[in-house]
């Protein structure tokens, strides 16, 4: 086993355990924390894959901003004291997990087998050593994907306005 395999197993295990913890903790704060752990492990996996930029952005955007927002809302609503009562029944839960396992099996089957014929599999052997720098990403982003890039700014603007409208109406009703 080389270093990459050991690290893959480590990060993979941590991210899986974290993900399972997200859906099993009763309290949303602990779920949020587990999700942060998962995101970190994924950032580690991104570094293993040579995607340093994506790893850093993963930590900045997900761990640094999105999860802080989650924590903010959980604390704001003080959900700890009124944890959700009517959880779904045991039978339904079992059914959901069985369906989930089937879904996972399907995903794994696709991941292992169906890729054999595609360009991905054929390119795999040769190009494994290429690392993609921030420069490459920037170049693609501002040339080939310029239009999508501009559109994302519109999405963010829409989100911004949407949030303001949502919360503004709330405030006026209270007055």
């Amino acid at each position: 086993m080389n270093a990459e395999q050991i690290l893959f197993i480590l990060f993979g295990a941590v991210s899986l355990i974290g993900a399972i913890a997200v859906i099993s903790f009763r309290h949303p704060i602990y779920s949020a924390l587990s999700l942060i752990v998962t995101f970190f492990a994924q950032a580690g996996l991104f570094v293993l894959l040579g995607a340093h930029f994506v790893a850093a952005v993963q930590v900045i955007v997900y761990a640094g901003a999105i999860m802080v927002l989650f924590l903010f809302v959980i604390m704001l609503l003080n959900l700890g004291t009124l944890s959700v009562q009517g959880a779904i029944g045991r039978k339904l839960k079992g059914l959901a997990i069985i369906l989930g396992i089937l879904f996972a099996a399907e995903g794994i089957y696709i991941a292992v087998n169906a890729l054999n014929d595609t360009a991905v599999a054929s390119a795999e052997s040769g190009a494994a050593a290429v690392t993609i720098t921030t420069y490459d990403i920037g170049e693609l982003l501002f040339s080939k994907y310029l239009l999508p890039f501009e559109v994302t700014s519109l999405i963010l603007l829409a989100a911004l306005i949407g949030v303001i409208v949502l919360v503004k109406r709330e405030g006026q009703e209270e007055n």
Binding site: H52, F53, V59, I60, A63, G64, V68, T134
Partner: peptide
Amino acid sequence: NIGILYILAITSLGVYGVV
């Protein structure tokens, strides 16, 4: 090679201790 992003990423985590 992503030094600044690293700094931004790590410093953004400090808030968890406080929160």
